[in-house]
Amino acid sequence: MIATIAFGLLIVSLIIQIIVLFKKDAKPDSIAPWISLVAGLLLLVEIVRRSIAIHFVALTGMFESLIFLACFLTLLIFGLRYIKAAKGNKVIPFGATIVAVIFLALASSPLAPADIKPPVPALQSGWLVLHVSFTFIGEVFFTVGFVSAILQLATKREERRQTYDRLAYTSVAVGYPIFTAGALIFGAIWAEKAWGVWWSWDPKETWALITWLTYTAYLHFRLVRKSTSKLVPALVIAGFFIAMFTFFGVNFLLSGLHSYA
């Protein structure tokens, strides 16, 4: 219910942003970021409500993961107001809002049942909570990097391109340490505690590693690239799609493959 209200709010926000985008002379609107903030806080309330119900951090199912991602993404969209390079930019919050709407649309689909279930023993771990939350927060920053990288590829104006390049790099520079800690290190620590093996090449792990290698390649390539290279933003875009595949694809496609075996 709460998630549905947040979803509705974001749709309203999208409509306002579209209107403002098409009015070329208009100043960036002052309403949409606040709607985004309210939506984010509502989703936070939902996470807390569910956590109280199961006496554990509600972060163990597909629905809850999507709510968490959308929550932090909408909060970050609001936060963009305070970041110098993004201030006054209308397209980046718009692009990020679309992603948040997609997350919530998926959350309300049958793919992500919303029933509240307490976790099975393997999931009852503080390391798991750290693992999942850090991974997702890292990915929220990657989302802003993804939108910036698309704009970097799309724009022709050199000065703008540099701004988007910097913004994409800054987003990855914030997201990468958090993702590294969450996806790789806390994930490995949790696996060791739960199963006695810190790395086992299962598909989810392997795809998280691919995500990380892609962003690592980006960070190094950016050190030596020519400033007009299209491969630099392309790696950020690829990184985001791989991260999303790690999240959805592995569950629905690859493990689906297993379940027929």
Binding site: W207, I210, L213, T214, A217, F221, V224, V250, A261
Partner: peptide, 22 residues
């Protein structure tokens, strides 16, 4: 660093194959 980037991409490609084929 260029070698590093090439190797990172190569390792990622191996991992993609290993991540798709059980």
């Amino acid at each position: 660093i260029k070698l590093a980037v090439a190797l990172l991409v190569l390792l990622a490609l191996f991992a993609i194959v290993g991540g798709i084929i059980p």
